[in-house]
Amino acid sequence: MTVAGMAPREFLTDRLILGLVALVALVLGMPSLKPLFATLYPGLDRPLYEAESFVRLTLDHMALVGISSLAAILLGGGAGIAVTRPWGREFRGLLETVATMGQTFPPVAVLALAVPVMGFGPEPALIALTLYALLPVVENTVAGLDGVPAPVLDSARGLGMGPAEMLFRVELPLAAPVILAGVRTAVIINVGTAAIASTVGAKTLGLPIIVGLNGSNQAYVIQGALIVAALAVVIDAGFDRLAIWLARWSQH
């Protein structure tokens, strides 16, 4: 479903487009809402979070989520591929056990544990987010590659495809929807954990919320919460769209 091909009404009710418009408006327009927050909270000296710009915080937030997710896709996807090859099969059980067990660890606890090991700052947040995002990516890569029907593999082999060609032209395209679902889970969790990462010294959209909670400034809390919620909804809607595209593409 391309934007150009949409009827005007579809365009106006599309969750992704509406969300994007709302997100951009919130990020750019928050400063102009200062009078509104001043009216809502007359007791506050500073009704608008101004220590960092919301544009900066949003970009930093997205960078933290983007880099950690990309690293998790490369590492987790690679590990998932490795254990479904004949030479890596022995490690499959262990990897699956770690992925299942690891996902019972609450992300916030993993984030907190990164600090005693690595200190404060964006680096422990990046490592913790990457480690956590690995788990759903690994799980779904293995499940997706596993779900490729054996007859399909046999006929690909019959066509004379080598292992690498089979992986990239048959297995990965067929597994792509399942892998994408894992990436989506990982990214959505990371958007939320990145917000909490403000407590370990990473400057993200969680910062106004944390500063507001610690200083009893509800206006700060609302400003940060609105933007981070909008960001999560937009990213989720984006994955919805991506899944539809992928389903169409893999049918061809």
């Binding site: 959505i188 958007v191 940060g224 999560a232």
Partner: peptide
């Protein structure tokens, strides 16, 4: 989908 810290806020 909404991050926990945002929903609390």
């Amino acid at each position: 989908t909404v991050p926990s810290i945002a929903l609390f806020g």
